[in-house]
């Protein structure tokens, strides 16, 4: 009823033509480069850095608490899990930037 002669459509087209409305997000603008080498290198760095942080954290806690291999072993696996979590975040489709 309110759109009897396509007024809203024409208004929207005119506004878009004049650049008054913000452009709709295409989704991949400002996205990360997605070459196979880039993705592969990124994935490797994410896993290794999480593993290194986990191992270092465990080793540091062990030095502090004097419980040598145990916390190191636990945090080694925690670091591995964090690396997998990083990978999941890397390949999960990102939600749109909020309003």
């Amino acid at each position: 009823m309110e759109n009897r002669d396509g007024f809203d459509d024409r208004l929207r087209q005119a506004r878009t033509r004049q650049g008054l409305d913000p452009k709709p997000r295409t989704g991949d603008e400002g996205g990360l480069p997605t070459g196979p080498w880039g993705i592969g290198f990124r994935a490797g760095v994410e896993v290794v850095s999480a593993l290194v942080v986990g191992a270092a954290l465990g080793f540091g806690l062990d030095r502090w608490l004097g419980t040598f291999p145990w916390l190191f072993l636990v945090f080694f696996f925690v670091g591995g899990a964090a690396g997998v979590l990083n990978l999941y975040r890397l390949f999960k489709p990102r939600p749109e930037a909020g309003p």
Binding site: V52, V53, L57, N86
Partner: peptide, 9 residues
């Protein structure tokens, strides 16, 4: 711990 390590990494 996993989330903390992921954040620090």
């Amino acid at each position: 711990p996993v989330e903390v390590v992921s954040y620090i990494s």
